[in-house]
Amino acid sequence: MRILIAPDKFKGTLTGVQAAAAMSEGALRVYPEAVVTMLPVADGGEGTLEAAVAAGFTERFNTVVGPIIKPAGAVWGIHRQTRVAVIETAQASGYLLCEPTVENSLRAHSYGSGQLIVAALEAGATEIIVGLGGSAMTDAGSGALRALGLKLLDGQGHLVPLGGGSLLDVAAIDASGLDPRLAGVKIRMAVDVDNPLYGYNGAAHVFSAQKGADDDAVQKLDAGLRHLASLVREATGVDVDVAGAGAAGGFPALFLAYAGATIERGFDLVAEMIGLDEALADTDLVITGEGSMDEQSLSGKAPIGVADAAHARGLPVVVVAGRITVTPQELAKHGVVAAVSATDVAGSPEAALADAARYTIRATSEALNGI
């Protein structure tokens, strides 16, 4: 028996690696002779770097400028052979690095994420995957590109301050000092949302409130994104108000115009990066899961992506999750033959959260005993 264990994180309780380890222990209790392979997955946001490292990427560490100027330590990864680098905006420009206040929602920037891209270029990266999610800023990636030499100037030719709250003051974009190495590297933005840059469904209106913005700040940030997009369109002819450009405070936007970046479905990109197809070709059973298996999961979250890929190969899939609110019939459409939640095994959500690893182990064993 060859078992592939490929969960996403159980947000708030277990990382993808920890969830995989718990599932592995549960599986080996039922099939002690099984050959188990652990391959954590992600949607392109937080957890993308962890999935890369678990798949063989080497961790690197840099001290960068955090989202409100204070220094922050950030981890990123690079593959020794392929020279593919992976960074996460959450590492250098994440909302956990600053208080969610109105002032910070306007000041927060992505400069540190740009410094990680610089570090990847200096390490010889030929491709850079940027995992978008957990960000503090709404600056259209302007801070990151400023770390790479782009200049945003006001009407007097002075640099405008960092942060989304200053975008309305931009009168001109100077790309003459942009790092020439960007022309020789492929930048791929991993997203798990399809929000445009601005407007009612854009970065400011949908996401900035959770970063501390009040109604006035939301309006100011959205107007700034719209204004900057107009300047970019005039300067480059590129329309950056496209699906997915609203991820991580609009981070992809300026990279589309000035670095030839692409926006890609996060799970697909992560699956390619970690070699999911190759792993599926050498397995008999797949176990996947996440913290909450719900209706949103069925819209293309990582565990359902894993299940669909396995189902296409005729492989049975077992789901283990913190909680499950979708029906067995809905899961069966994706090749799932058994699904057990830690909450059901523990008897209550509180108990499951208090000892997530223990109950994930037990849920995995119970699921496998039932097939």
Results as ranks from 00 to 15, higher is better:
P100F: 06
V84S: 07
V65I: 11
V86D: 12
W76V: 06
V84K: 05
T63S: 15
P67N: 00
L97F: 02
I87Y: 01
V64L: 12
V102W: 03
Q91S: 14
A55K: 10
H79N: 15
V84C: 08
P71V: 13
I78C: 02
G66V: 07
E88P: 03
P100K: 04
V102F: 07
G94W: 00
A92S: 12
A74C: 10
P100H: 06
T89S: 13
E99S: 10
V64S: 08
A54P: 08
R60L: 13
G66N: 02
G77K: 09
K70V: 13
I69N: 12
G66Q: 08
N62S: 14
F61Q: 11
G94N: 02
A92L: 09
V102K: 07
Y95C: 11
E99I: 10
A55N: 08
G56V: 05
K70F: 14
A55S: 14
E88Y: 07
G66K: 01
G73W: 01
A74L: 06
W76A: 07
V64Q: 08
F61A: 06
H79F: 09
S93T: 03
P71L: 11
F61Y: 10
G73M: 08
P67D: 00
I87G: 02
E88R: 04
I78S: 04
V65S: 10
A54L: 08
G73P: 07
Q91F: 01
Q81A: 13
C98E: 05
G56S: 10
T63D: 14
F57K: 04
Y95G: 11
R83N: 12
Q81P: 04
Q91D: 06
G73C: 09
I69Y: 11
Y95P: 03
I87N: 02
I68Y: 00
K70D: 15
P67V: 00
W76T: 05
S93A: 11
